[in-house]
């Protein structure tokens, strides 16, 4: 049976350091490649690397990091942050990334999704949606959550799916950083409505939150950062817990 996926997310500064890593059982804490290998060995199903600086000057360091990750990691990984053009996607895929995640650029120019899917295949185009609930409605935000758009999350998700997106990475800005659990309602709406997988992100704090987002939120995958980086629990512990509770996972 197809399993639900557990995806650690690594926010990388200047292509060098993973932000917010607090456990110390690694020789080089914070090295994106070492940390990725560690998670892969622990049983992570995929990895996401986000370039949180994403400036022109840092682009070379970023590409070099993606190449190093591709050399060392034996599971699929997605890269995101600052991907705006067909050329950016090509560069990332050539550096060895399996998928790219696109956010603001797609909102600015929706036809970009069609072009990327046609050129590289839907399977490698992940559309990241940062959504915030206001007055009962989920709105799409861009530019790291600073700009509100006129898109409702549901409409935008449907739009990019029709344009050829292969997967949706949905982050609830209301839940992100709270450690109080994922946004179950919007995750479930998208997961049940769309013919493509939905990755839930934002709010993971306890193992029960993952169980809920799979059971009630119907997510295909769940992404988290700090719970893993802080060592609150490990991926094997989480997967054992999910399996005991009847969720199909890769052990």
């Amino acid at each position: 049976m197809l399993t639900r996926r557990i995806i650690p997310c690594l926010d990388v500064q200047d292509g060098q350091t993973v932000k917010g890593v607090h456990f110390v059982n690694l020789r080089r804490v914070g090295d994106p490649v070492t940390l990725g290998q560690f998670y892969a060995r622990q049983g992570a199903d995929e990895l996401v690397y986000l370039d949180i600086t994403a400036t022109v000057e840092n682009r070379r360091a970023w590409v070099e990091m993606v190449q190093r990750v591709a050399q060392k990691i034996n599971i699929p990984f997605t890269v995101g942050g600052g991907i705006r053009t067909i050329g950016d996607v090509e560069k990332m895929l050539q550096a060895g990334a399996d998928k790219v995640s696109v956010n603001s650029a797609a909102v600015q120019e929706p036809a970009l999704v069609n072009r990327m899917a046609r050129e590289f295949g839907s399977q490698c185009i992940v559309i990241a949606i940062d959504a915030r609930q206001e007055g009962g409605e989920w709105w799409v935000y861009t530019h790291g959550g600073r700009q509100r758009t006129f898109w409702r999350a549901i409409d935008w998700a449907r739009e990019v799916t029709e344009r050829g997106a292969g997967e949706i990475l949905l982050t609830s800005m209301n839940h992100d950083g709270t450690r109080n659990g994922f946004a179950l309602d919007i995750t479930r709406q998208l997961a049940e409505m769309l013919p493509i997988p939905v990755i839930a992100s934002g709010g993971a704090g306890r193992m029960e939150h993952f169980l809920k987002v799979f059971r009630e939120g119907k997510a295909d995958a769940a992404l988290a950062a700090s719970v893993f980086h802080f060592g609150h629990f490990t991926i094997p512990q989480l997967k054992q817990f999910l399996k005991m509770n009847g969720i199909e996972v890769r052990l």
């Binding site: 996926r5 199903d45 399977q123 769309l194 493509i196 997988p197 295909d220």
Partner: peptide, 13 residues
């Protein structure tokens, strides 16, 4: 067949 999500993406046995 269109009775589930396509592509089949992820880990399976």
């Amino acid at each position: 067949p269109p009775k589930g999500k396509v592509p089949h993406m992820g880990w399976n046995t």
